[in-house]
Every structure is written in structure tokens, then in C-alpha cells.
Simulated assay, not measured.
Amino acid sequence: MASDEQPTIELRLDGAGEPATTTTTGYETAKRKRRSWIAWVVAGVVLVILIVGVVLVETVGRSAAVRIAQNEIASSLGLESSDGVAVDLGSGSLIVQALTGGLDVVTIDIDRFAVNGLESSVQVIATGVPVVTSQPIDTVSMDVAITGDEVSKLATTLSGTGLDSIELEGTAIRVSTVFELLFFEIPVALDLVPVAAGDSIAFEPESVILGEEQISVADLLDNPLVSGLAGGLLSSQEFCVASSLPTALTIDSVAVANDNLVIQLSADGIALDDAAWKQYGTCPTP
């Protein structure tokens, strides 16, 4: 005889009658880990892109800044081209320096630069160079080095008489000649010290070597016989450099060092776009 009982469904409860909590599967855990890993990869890629972008901006910006500086220097100093002009913008980040208002140190080397007909090499060091050209540069120092071979072209400037030789000797320029007195030939050498004289270089007699005897310039001039012979040797003239340099620059000192005649100039607190960088002085016509 068939039973009239209906099948029953048992609902199991845990604890205080709440349904059992379903636990996280291993698949879901792996999925979360994968999302975390992808996020780190994306962040790394973005960081690399940013770094590469900064490097590219720095490199391109530095190259452009160097070209601009080369062209400006060539224009300011009247060079035919920017070839032979090397510009060093320093090791610091240009971006950081630009954000702070300017470049810390700029060094410029010029292979060939003519100073009133004399070939020279030049080094310029500028500090506190602003990004805005209307703002003043903190300091500008410029060293013009003229070799002994080029100095020898100053024969007519160094003396009012013919010279047999001109050479750099220690801290002076030694010029020499031979005077004929009756039947005698008297070798005379004169040490000249270069000094700054406004926009020119003057050569002041320091000592005289007459034969084998060294005497002072004052004693030489007091001797009527000798002064009559050597007067032309002592009549030094000034060598003008104004026509070769911007009026923004001032001659601070002149010296003989390392077998070169070195002219030291400076310009402080003058803006990059100041007209003085484009203007030149004049020199007397020979």
C-alpha cells in the first residue's frame, strides 16, 4: 500500500540559525592578485614614460639652448659663424634651473677671435644667467689669450724704433734691438709690462738691459747720450681693443701668463638684451 507521505527538504543552519557564509574561492583570489600586478605594471610603464619624456625634454632643450647661446655669442662678438664656439651649460638640470629663474653657470670657449688684427682664443664664464633676457646677468668674466707669435705683430706699437725680436719673458714682453754708436754696436733689451688703460693696453717699461748691464728706466733717461739712442725704444704706444669688443665689457687687467698676453674683462649686472652687447667702441686710425 503506497505511502501518502511527501518528500521533505532539509535546510541546514549554522550556529544561531544564520546561513553558512560562502568562502572565497581560489579563482577569485588569483583574479585580485592579477589585477594588482597589472596595476603595478601600468604604474611602472607610466613612470618610465615620464622619465623618458623628461630626458627628451632635457636633451632637446639643452641642445636648443646651446645653439641659441652659440648664435648670440657669435653675433655679439662679430664672429663670422658660431663654428668653434663651445657652450657648456653646466651639469645641473636645465628644467630645474629654468624653474628657479636662470642658469647657474655658463662657460663659453671660442677657438679664434680677432682683437684688432691679432688672433686669440677666448673663454667666457657667466653666472646667474636669467631665462628672461631683460633681467641682468649676475657676473660675466672674459679672458682673451693672445700667443707670443701674435704679440710680435705689435712691433710698431711696442716701440718707436725698429726691433730685432719680441718675446714673452716671465711676466713681461721683452723687446730688443741693436744701436750703432760710432763703430760700436750696442744690444739693448727692454722689458715691458702690459697694463689696462681704459679701452686700450699700454706697455710700461720696467727695466732695460744695455749690453750686459741692467739699469733702471729712470737712469737710462737721465743719461743724455744713452737716452738719445734709446728714446725711441722707450716711446711705447697704446694698443686699442675697443673696436673688437662690446662696450658692455670693461678691461680689468692685462698680464703675461703661460706664454700668452691675457686680457681680462668683465661685465656685471647687464641684461642679455642690453644694447651694450651689440655696440662697439672705436680705435684711432693708424
Rank of each mutant, 00 (worst) to 15 (best):
R34W: 15
I68F: 09
G148M: 00
A196H: 09
A98V: 03
I108R: 08
L163Y: 01
V131T: 12
L190G: 02
A20C: 02
L99M: 13
A230N: 04
D83V: 06
I186T: 00
R34D: 13
S36Y: 15
V262P: 04
K278V: 01
E28C: 09
L89S: 06
A69K: 01
V193S: 09
D199G: 10
G170Q: 11
E72D: 14
T133S: 14
V48D: 00
T23A: 13
V115F: 06
S227R: 04
F239R: 05
C240H: 02
S216F: 09
S216Q: 07
L272M: 12
V195H: 08
G44D: 01
N71S: 14
A242E: 13
G269T: 06
I108D: 08
V144P: 05
L233Q: 06
V208N: 09
L265N: 01
V188W: 10
P194D: 02
E28W: 13
I186N: 08
D164V: 00
S200Y: 10
L158G: 03
G148F: 00
L158I: 04
S3F: 08
V188D: 08
M1Y: 12
V132K: 11
L249T: 06
L11I: 13
G44Q: 03
T22H: 12
V208S: 02
D109Y: 00
G53W: 02
V60E: 04
L234Y: 03
R62W: 01
Y280V: 13
G160E: 11
G162E: 15
E167A: 14
S236A: 08
A114F: 11
D88F: 08
R35P: 00
L47P: 00
A276W: 06
V129S: 01
A20Q: 11
V217G: 03
I51F: 11
A155C: 09
D219Y: 10
P19W: 08
T127R: 01
E150N: 09
V122C: 04
Q264E: 13
D199N: 14
V124Y: 05
G101I: 12
A114V: 12
K153C: 00
L154N: 05
M142K: 10
L94A: 06
P205F: 11
V131H: 04
A248G: 04
T127N: 07
S36A: 14
I209C: 00
S227Y: 14
I251Q: 06
P7G: 09
D273E: 08
E150I: 14
I73T: 15
D222Y: 05
D274P: 02
V46C: 06
N258R: 04
A155E: 15
K33L: 08
E213M: 09
G269R: 03
